[in-house]
């Protein structure tokens, strides 16, 4: 296990940001998912040693999160959510500087800085002052500084925030490339479901500081429910009520498509029986592949 935490709790004053979270993360890209305020960033900060948990314990790689903070930070790369840079520096000096602070020899850090800046697509702009960088360039720069010392684990906190669609696609492509290297594990914290779905093998869903779901994406999709997309004509309210009584959760999209989450083991024929009973016509019936969005809505209870 690369990351293991047990009963982790943390408070910001009176606000309980993390409440008894326990989990074990193996190899591969892991998505950390949750609505705003779910505790994703808090968890990353605890794992990095920025915050000391009020309760619980944990290990990152083979290191204890309370005792071995320096060793953890030497082995991981961190790309924070907010814009961060040092005014008056160019990208090469900046990246090499943080490589050096990670423990790289000065010359090696400078050489590697050039490499990672080319890798993230800032090769041509590497001698420009950071003060003049656009939001997208700063995002790539943050990725470069996180990669410069070749970490074993890469923590990415909302890596595609503030990016236009093209920039987002390019950064995601970079992250996917890194994640496919077996020796770099990517922990991607995001509230953008598509980002996580397109990159991660497994997902941890946090909600209100608690662990809402955890596991491989396929397993999570399969375990909880089957999803059917239905269009009906008639007394929709009665039909929805009947489905609710049968233990199904029903969401309606803007174009009046009903998404019916059926509990595992329930008979899909019950949907037709409910339609017959309530006198509605079923105009369309499709068994849908559950997306991460559906899973998220299912466990967190938000759309």
């Amino acid at each position: 296990m690369s990351i293991e935490v047990k009963d982790l709790s943390f408070r910001y004053g009176k606000i309980l940001a993390m409440d008894g979270v326990s989990m074990r993360l193996g190899e591969g890209a892991v998505g950390l998912l949750g609505p705003n305020g779910a505790g994703k960033s808090t968890l990353l900060r605890i794992l990095l040693g920025f915050l000391v948990p009020d309760r619980g314990e944990g290990r990152v790689l083979e290191y204890d999160i309370r005792r071995d903070r320096a060793a953890i930070r030497r082995s991981v790369g961190y790309m924070p959510e907010s814009d961060c840079f040092i005014a008056g520096m160019d990208a090469v000096s900046f990246t090499a500087y943080f490589g050096e602070l990670s423990g790289m020899p000065r010359r090696e850090a400078m050489k590697r800085a050039h490499e990672v800046l080319f890798y993230v697509g800032l090769g041509e702009a590497r001698y420009r002052l950071l003060d003049t960088y656009s939001a997208g360039m700063k995002q790539r720069l943050k990725l470069a500084q996180a990669l410069v010392h070749d970490p074993r684990i890469l923590f990415l906190d909302e890596p595609t925030s503030n990016l236009d669609p093209t920039g987002r696609a390019e950064v995601l492509e970079l992250i996917r490339d890194i994640a496919t290297k077996n020796s770099v594990q990517v922990i991607l914290s995001s509230h953008i479901l598509d980002d996580i779905e397109s990159i991660c093998d497994s997902v941890v869903i946090l909600n209100k500081g608690r662990l809402a779901a955890e596991g491989r994406m396929e397993d999570l999709r399969a375990i909880h429910y089957s999803l059917f997309e239905i269009r009906v004509k008639g007394d929709e309210e009665s039909f929805r009520r009947a489905l609710g009584e049968a233990g199904c959760r029903v969401d309606e999209t803007e174009d009046r498509l009903l998404k019916v989450y059926m509990p595992e083991g329930a008979d899909p024929m019950d949907l037709f029986r409910a339609a017959a009973r309530t006198g509605v016509q079923m105009r369309s019936f499709v068994k849908s592949r559950t997306s991460l969005e559906d899973l998220f809505a299912g466990v967190v209870g938000v759309d």
């Binding site: 990095l48 030497r74 924070p80 961060c84 423990g103």
Partner: peptide, 10 residues
Amino acid sequence: SALQLYFARP
């Protein structure tokens, strides 16, 4: 916000 970059280092 550069402090978090420093303290993400050893």
